[in-house]
Design a protein around this nucleic acid. Structure first.
Lengths: 336, 336
DNA sequence: TTGTAAGCGTTATCAT
DNA sequence: ATGATAACGCTTACAA
């Protein structure tokens, strides 16, 4: 593999000149430039960006840590990250934490060692040492799908509390009073926890007593939703509506409910969270909270790049969410 | 940021020794090692893997090029890649080609410049210059979701032709004779093309004349399937069954058919391709061809790493596929 | 506009 | 077991 030294020799110029035609072509006389360009061709020169990174101390790479690329919401946000990054000639290396703190910790270690210029993290533990260390070191990073408001950390997220509230409120407005919730394990993600708080607040605001039996925690999966809804349905006084903390759970709940002999949405109203692409293709089409995952990815990357260029005060961006009413929710059945 | 030089000075040893405690701790006396370890702590030393890569000429990074992380099948394979890579301390940088050749070309250029040790490519153009150049340069790479058999390129894929065949055969065995196909654009992916060939062959083997009006090409999307099925249904003699070249198209087709007033699966049998996680949660649950995307990702990475260590003869791996019969297909309606 | 040469943080070779 | 030092491919003052 030839280097700029070979090119320089071949073109009869110095390595500095070769470097110049690569990085600021205009700063070199056309004749010289052409000589160099030709020399590059003839010795099949390939630029070594790693060597550049070594000297400039910029790898032009950022690390992206998400729980699981398998989850369409994170895939969407990842797409947003990639597109924005690529538009700015930044590469992104991807890591999955699987919601495990130790894994997240290791990822930031590895990524920092490989000299990424910044980090995008959908964190598993907001209070963990990992983030603290990043802050202490003044390392550029921004949180994605974050629940922080204020503080020394830049972040983009949504108001999960409000999401839980408006989802529940929709159900209440349809006349439901027994409203269950299938939530992602609070120990795994605080997003789910905040949604639950919104749910409870809405119940309270409407004079509906909170019944802890109506909450079941599970993992954010199709099968989790399917199994969980059955538990709820076996209750002496089962819910007539259920709020699921993500769409996968909601999809699973639909299937589980149907297996339990219910007709949807007549016997059970279901609202999800995320608004995955497939949500409107379910039967019945899923009513859910729309979350702009792709845009969040873009925005977080934008924030990060600003931070990388000129470390400034932290910024928290809250993105809009909205209730998308489709067919999976309907009026509460008469219990006359 | 301190370097091994600082550590060496602080510990009163040479940089070589510091390097040794990092890379082969056992080769240094315990007392010395502890001195060094302590020095590292006190000056908050952070290893610079980029510098290492610069001298060893290995970045311990591979590039992964897929059409779109948004597609769950590619997300699954990406997960397989990542997990295998991580088990071997390899980082993966991700790029989306959006099925665009120019984009793919640029990605391999950028990735090679950043000195990735190998490339995993779900290619858009098997015959393009990009792959040729890679072969000429003896650069380690393997194709994912590939359709090649033989030749100088390592690859892992499935038998798309056979997939199309068994999908169609299932429909035929249910008594269908008017069998349509909604296929991903042949100009965009030859996988879809091969599936179509399997479909045609199966028809021929069963004495069913091929009707070109029964084929519609679209993009591999939900809305593509939805729109396309309507075209098919408007035919003077519409199909009683349809083979969709991926699950998204099939999901869309279900919705479109229902919107056209059909009952599923009685009025129209549908089979998909991929077996996405959500396939069994659709109503009716989708009959489809199962493709082991995650395993393919793992296998491809395994192949690549072997290639990176000891360049050898190319290997093509064909993974198993299978027909998963669920509820979206049923006997052909009587047309007495 | 172009050249000279130092320097980036590690590894690796050769001594000791 | 440890040390001294060249080398990796590039950028970047500084000089000419």
């Amino acid at each position: 593999m030839s280097t700029i030294i070979d090119v320089a020799r071949l073109a009869g110029v110095s390595t500095a000149t070769v470097s110049r035609v690569i990085n600021s072509p205009d700063s070199v006389r056309e004749a010289t430039r052409n000589k160099v360009l030709l020399a590059m061709k003839t010795c099949n020169y390939k630029y070594n960006a790693l060597a550049r990174g070594f000297v400039t101390k910029k790898s032009n790479t950022i690390g992206l840590i998400i729980p699981n690329i398998n989850n369409p919401v994170f895939a969407d946000s990842t797409l947003g990250v990639q597109e924005y990054a690529e538009e700015h000639n930044i590469k992104v290396v991807l890591g999955n934490s699987y919601y495990k703190y130790a894994q997240e910790e290791n990822l930031v270690k590895v990524l920092r060692e490989s000299q990424v210029d910044g980090l995008l993290i959908t964190t598993t533990d907001l209070k963990g040492e990992v983030l603290k260390a990043l802050v202490d070191d003044n390392f550029p990073f921004v949180l994605l799908f974050s629940t922080v408001k204020g503080g020394p950390i830049s972040a983009v997220g949504i108001d999960n509390y409000r999401g839980g509230y408006i989802a529940t409120d929709h159900l209440v407005s349809l006349g439901h009073r027994r409203i269950g919730m299938v939530a992602g394990n609070f120990s795994i993600t605080d997003r789910s926890f905040h949604r639950w708080n919104g749910y409870r607040k809405c119940l309270r605001d409407n004079g509906i007593p909170y019944d802890k039996n109506l909450l079941v925690q599970t993992d954010h999966s199709l099968s989790g939703g399917r199994d969980s809804i059955k538990k709820l349905l076996e209750l002496p006084s089962p819910p007539t509506a259920v709020f699921c903390s993500n769409d996968y759970i909601a999809f699973g709940a639909m299937k589980g409910a149907r297996e339990a002999g219910l007709a949807l949405p007549e016997d059970l109203s279901i609202v999800g969270f995320d608004d995955m692409q497939t949500a409107s293709y379910m039967v019945p089409a899923l009513t859910t909270i729309h979350q702009p995952a792709y845009e969040m990815g873009r925005r977080a990357t934008e924030l990060l790049m600003a931070l990388m260029n000129t470390p400034g005060k932290p910024v928290q961006t809250m993105m809009d969410i909205s209730l998308v009413i489709r067919e999976s929710t309907t009026s509460a059945p008469d219990r006359a």
